[in-house]
Design a protein around this nucleic acid. Structure first.
Length: 364
DNA sequence: AAACGCCGCAACCGCCGAGGT
DNA sequence: AACCTCGGCGGTTGCGGCGTT
């Protein structure tokens, strides 16, 4: 049989540690060193589970722990590492001397995550969130301007393309750029694709064509602030197209991007590569931070943003990550030209026209 | 001054892989 | 081979502090 239980569940204290307990634990570890957590509580005279002792030591009492607020550099490092590693807090902590995984995890959940959300960035994928506003603006504009030559099949094609988060990000960036910058962006994209594994796996001419179509589509649609009720059929068709694509995607694990085992891992497998050549969504024109630890196999990450620093990414994310007051800043995701009426118009569409069976959470 | 709600963080919970019995 | 603990990890909870009403 196996070993005897590490601790008797009865008589084991839980809850906050007292200073006396801390002193006992510290002095014992100073004498005998950490390890053998199973027998440590008994030998140290603590009414605690070994696991609790280990956590207390590694997360709080260890002498090399750096306390206090996270610096700007640390925060940037966390975000960059999280974009690569995901919720691998211990791996992230390993690159931040003096910080524990628990501390980083807490800081992420209480500060960084919220800030990314406020800035319209998905904290899981680190990509701009599904640009429902732009999509709905196309739809609502078309409804308001029947004269606009909006080919539904074209829209459907673009909608399908946008369901690929990588393409979505490109399209989102593209749509936010001014004409001259967007042309340059497409040109750079075409040049850079040679070095980008993500794009190497794509039909690049087709991808660029889709992006140009999408961009032209957005360009030619004037702003609109109201929607008419007589156009529900159009909306229905569009949502059906979206739904069909969603279902098709869900049932096709070998489609353009791969679903990992669970919905929360809904991250394109090539996300790492895509980051290499995409604009930095977090820092407007901040050069790569030399203090950020090298990433070994991810070494391409650091140079990721160099080629795009001249772009007006401010228009994608208007607020720098370390904005002193992010809550009051205007995210570009709510386009700066949008009015309250427009937003209300969008929300009406989003609220009533997206079928319930469409699980948006899977995309966001 | 009291009540209330929000936020941050320490600690716990539950799961997993490695390895011991 | 089966069963168990250990150590480690990520997710979640609960409490205390703080600000607001």
């Amino acid at each position: 049989m196996g070993r005897v239980p590490c601790c008797d569940k009865n008589g084991v204290k839980k809850g906050p540690w007292t200073t006396e307990e801390d002193h006992k634990l510290i002095s014992f570890i100073q004498l005998h060193g950490p390890g053998n957590w199973r027998s440590l509580p008994k030998n140290a005279g603590l009414q605690r589970c070994g696991k609790s002792c280990r956590l207390r030591w590694t997360n709080y009492l260890r002498p090399d722990i750096k306390r206090g607020r996270f610096s700007f550099e640390e925060e940037e490092t966390i975000i960059q590492l999280h974009s690569i590693l995901g919720n691998k807090w211990s791996a992230i902590a390993a690159r931040l001397p003096g910080r524990t995984d628990n501390e980083i995890k807490n800081y992420w959940n209480t500060h960084i995550r919220k800030r990314l959300l406020v800035n319209g960035i998905d904290p899981v994928t680190h990509a701009p969130r599904l640009d429902l506003l732009d999509l709905s603006s196309i739809i609502s504009s078309a409804l308001c301007n029947p004269s606009t030559l909006l080919n539904l099949s074209t829209l459907a094609g673009n909608t399908q393309a946008l369901l690929n988060p990588n393409i979505l990000r490109l399209a989102t960036t593209l749509s936010s750029l001014k004409q001259e910058n967007s042309d340059m962006f497409l040109q750079k994209l075409q040049e850079n694709q040679l070095f980008n594994p993500l794009l190497q796996n794509q039909d690049v001419p087709a991808l660029l064509s889709q992006l140009r179509q999408f961009h032209n589509l957005v360009q030619q649609v004037p702003a609109c602030t109201t929607a008419t009720a007589s156009t529900g059929g159009f909306i229905d068709q569009t949502t059906q197209v979206m739904q069909a694509n969603v279902e098709g995607f869900s049932s096709n694990p070998t489609s353009t991007f791969s679903c990992q085992d669970s919905p929360e891992n809904f991250v394109p497998s090539s996300l790492n590569e895509s980051l290499v050549s995409l604009p930095n969504f977090y820092c407007n024109s901040t050069p790569p931070d030399p203090t950020v630890p090298e990433l070994g196999e991810y070494s391409g990450f650091q140079s990721a943003n160099i080629g795009y620093q001249n772009f007006s990414i401010d228009s994608v994310i208007s607020t720098p990550l370390m904005s002193p007051d992010p809550l009051n800043s205007s995210s570009t995701y709510l386009n700066s030209s949008s009015t309250e009426d427009e937003r209300e118009c969008y929300s009406r569409f989003l609220k009533f026209e997206i079928p319930e069976s469409l699980d948006i959470d899977d995309f966001l």
